[in-house]
Simulated assay, not measured.
Amino acid sequence: MPIMLRTVPAAIFLILAVFPAFAQPPASSSWVQGLHSRARLISGETEGGRHLAGIEIALDSGYKTYWRTPGDSGLPPRFDWAGSENVADVEIRWPAPSRHEDPGGVSYVYEDSVVLPVLVTPKEAGKPVTLALSADYGICKDICIPAHAEMKATLSGKGPHQADIAKALAEVPRPQALGAKSEIAVESIERVAQDQPTFRVTVRAPAGTKPALFPEAPENWYLSASEPDDANRVTVTVEDRPKEASGPVPVRLTLVAGGKAIETQVSLDAGQQPR
């Protein structure tokens, strides 16, 4: 009996040392394989009391996934954090997308792979955060296919993917006022005709670059944007809107050019006149 009393603690110590995953979930989730894609949660450091994490989606060659606003077609991603522990708030930051045009229309996409930075505020500072994510997203080559993944990771502020998350954060459009004197800017917006819900947006971009404008309005509104003309003017059209809609209606214009991205907030008044 004395021998057993001496060896049991040693056995427990050996089990915990060899299988630390029993103590807590890993700092990053394993890849979840889906059709032509895979996804995982990654973790970084702690900044300003918030944990940095990321949703990483890798795609098979030739496939795309969609930005928060998919464009003419596609599925906007949906993220459910209901199973998380010690989480007060989750904020997703969106790196700038690319404009993709095919016979189905214009879509706003990420190609090859993307990391969506996630800023997590804990309920109790100093304690580990368990981040649980149920993710639904679309992937596309010729047609759009829904994908689903369930992921879980523990955030302690010492995650191994800080560099990847920081790189993605650097690609998030920065807020900028209308008409800002900057190398890349939304210079002005004006109504094309009083009887048409169409606007002309003039943008500034570095010489030799081709700007892309991504307009967004509230849920159930749909805005389309043309490619810029030779004077860097983009035509934005209100294709659909709720019948009961009235102003002012917030509109976010994301501009991407030359590897840089900004976003400018404007609004439409009761007569759909831009302000």
Rank of each mutant, 00 (worst) to 15 (best):
P2Y: 10
L5W: 13
I12F: 09
F19D: 01
W31P: 08
V32R: 13
L35F: 15
H36R: 14
R40S: 00
L41S: 04
I42E: 05
I42S: 02
E47A: 13
G48Q: 07
L52D: 02
A53P: 00
G54D: 02
I57Y: 01
S61V: 13
W67E: 07
R68Y: 04
T69L: 04
T69I: 09
G71C: 00
S84M: 06
S84L: 07
V90R: 01
I92Y: 07
P95I: 08
S98G: 15
G104F: 12
V106Q: 04
V109A: 10
V118R: 08
T121V: 11
K123S: 15
G126N: 08
T130W: 13
A135N: 03
Y137C: 09
Y137P: 06
I139N: 12
I143E: 09
K158M: 10
A166E: 13
A168P: 03
L169C: 10
P173M: 04
Q176R: 02
A180S: 07
S182N: 05
E183S: 14
S188D: 12
E190D: 06
A193Y: 13
Q196D: 15
R204G: 06
A207T: 12
G208L: 06
T209C: 10
K210I: 14
S224P: 00
A225D: 00
A225L: 01
T235S: 11
V236N: 08
T237W: 05
E239W: 07
K243S: 12
R252V: 12
R252M: 10
L253S: 00
T254L: 08
V256M: 07
V256Q: 05
E263Y: 15
V266T: 06
R275T: 14
R275L: 14
